[in-house]
């Protein structure tokens, strides 16, 4: 299994993703600079968190036009597995690979803390190691994580089971207290209709071994490995 971690100017979770995949999941992984034009020899692509291009204009808006994004779009359109974490999620929405947009947190504050996530669809390439409705403990760290989509888009995303994670309290109840950013319907992560592109604001790359106090992030990366190894 060979993973690519895309590095934009301003990415700062690229090493976290690399480390998680290489050392915790024992996978082959390479950094790919944003100027690269081809991704054909990889099995999955990770767009890491950070502040690509200084978040200028809008988060992800400039990165979306990096040379490598043409290859990411081609890879995704061919059915390849693509994951965007935090800033990576913002880039994927800007690129039109995922529905909706990420906006300024309703609190106007940068939020950095562990949150509870309920797995809404465990039958995907990204959640196959999770149980239905399982509560994961994964940290968020963002100022622009309010998930927004117009009502028509939101309805279709929900109807097609594209919502993968919701912010909830410890008992798994989504409510305004457990929503760290004002996301519509407490949505923390979504996938595309085809099910091969996923974006999430929380950071599985920050909780994949005991020393990081939670290992739930390894379930997300592990699901991808499992899903891909069954198919290659």
């Amino acid at each position: 299994m060979k993973f690519a971690v895309i590095v934009f100017p301003g990415s700062n979770c690229d090493h976290d993703c690399y480390y998680a995949l290489k050392h915790a999941l024992k996978q082959d992984v390479e950094f790919v600079w944003h100027k690269e034009a081809s991704l054909s020899h990889y099995d999955a692509i990770i767009l890491p968190g950070g502040f690509s291009y200084g978040d200028y204009l809008r988060t992800g808006a400039i990165a979306r036009f990096s040379p490598v994004m043409r290859a990411v779009v081609e890879f995704a359109n061919a059915g390849g597995i693509v994951v965007g974490i935090c800033n990576g999620f913002q880039v994927l929405c800007e690129a039109g690979l995922l529905p909706g947009a990420l906006m300024r947190n309703d609190s106007l504050k940068f939020v950095c803390k562990f949150v509870n996530l309920r797995v809404e669809n465990s039958d995907t390439a990204f959640t196959t190691l999770c149980g239905p409705g399982e509560i994961l403990n994964i940290p968020v760290a963002h100022a622009e994580g309010l998930y927004y989509a117009d009502s028509v888009t939101l309805e279709s995303v929900k109807r097609n089971n594209q919502v993968l994670f919701r912010y909830t309290d410890e008992s798994g109840e989504p409510n305004s207290e457990s929503n760290p950013n004002g996301s519509l319907d407490n949505i923390a992560g979504v996938m595309n209709e085809r099910g091969n592109v996923m974006g999430m604001m929380p950071h599985p790359d920050r909780c994949f071994e005991e020393v990081l106090t939670s290992t739930d992030g390894a379930k997300i990366f592990g699901s991808m490995v499992e899903w891909l190894s069954e198919r290659t």
Partner: peptide
């Protein structure tokens, strides 16, 4: 293409 995001 760039300056405005038509979603929002």
């Amino acid at each position: 293409k760039l300056l405005a995001n038509p979603v929002i």
